[in-house]
C-alpha cells in the first residue's frame, strides 16, 4: 500500500502527455482467487451442460459461457478493468475488426445461394 501511494505521488511530479493510466494498480490476490474459482465453476458448468440436450441452445449457452469467461479474464487477470481508456479502446478495436472480418465475409456466404436477382 505504501508503495502504491508512493507511485501515485510520483505521477503528479511527471505529468505525462496522456495522464489516463492506472498501470500500477495492484490487484489483490483475493480478486484473483475469486475470479479463478468462478472460471473453474463456469468450465464445469459448460462441460456439464453439453451433456444436456438443448437443441440449438447448446451452442448458445456454450458460447455465452465462453464470452463470460473471456470477459472475466480480460477484466481481472489482464487488468483491463483498472487500465486506461486507451487500453480499453485497444481491446475494443480488436473485437471490432474481428467482427468486421466475420460479418463482411458472411455477407457473401449467406447470400451466395440466393442466385441472381
Amino acid at each position: 500500500m505504501d508503495q502504491q501511494a508512493h507511485e501515485h505521488h510520483e505521477h503528479h511530479i511527471f505529468e505525462p502527455s496522456e495522464p489516463t493510466h492506472h498501470a500500477e494498480h495492484i490487484v489483490s490476490p483475493r480478486v484473483y482467487l475469486v475470479v479463478g474459482t468462478t472460471l473453474l465453476i463456469l468450465t464445469g458448468t459448460t462441460a456439464a451442460v453439453s451433456y444436456v440436450d438443448l437443441g440449438t441452445f447448446n451452442a448458445v449457452v456454450a458460447l455465452a459461457i465462453a464470452c463470460i469467461k473471456m470477459t472475466l479474464v480480460i477484466l481481472f487477470f489482464m487488468h483491463v478493468k483498472y487500465s486506461s481508456k486507451l487500453t480499453k479502446l485497444t481491446v475494443a478495436a480488436g473485437f471490432f475488426t474481428f467482427l468486421v472480418l466475420i460479418t463482411m465475409t458472411m455477407t457473401d456466404y449467406i447470400s451466395r445461394a440466393w442466385g441472381r436477382w
Binding site: T97, V100, L101, M104, T107, D108, Y109, I110, S111, R112, A113, W114, G115, R116, W117
Partner: peptide
C-alpha cells in the same frame, strides 16, 4: 479500408448481393 475488400472478387463467384454492398 476494412469494408471494401471484396471489390477485388466481383467476377470470382461471390454473391451478387454481397458484391452490391461492397
Amino acid at each position: 479500408g476494412f469494408f471494401v475488400w471484396a471489390h477485388h472478387m466481383f467476377v470470382m463467384g461471390i454473391s451478387n448481393y454481397s458484391a452490391l454492398v461492397f
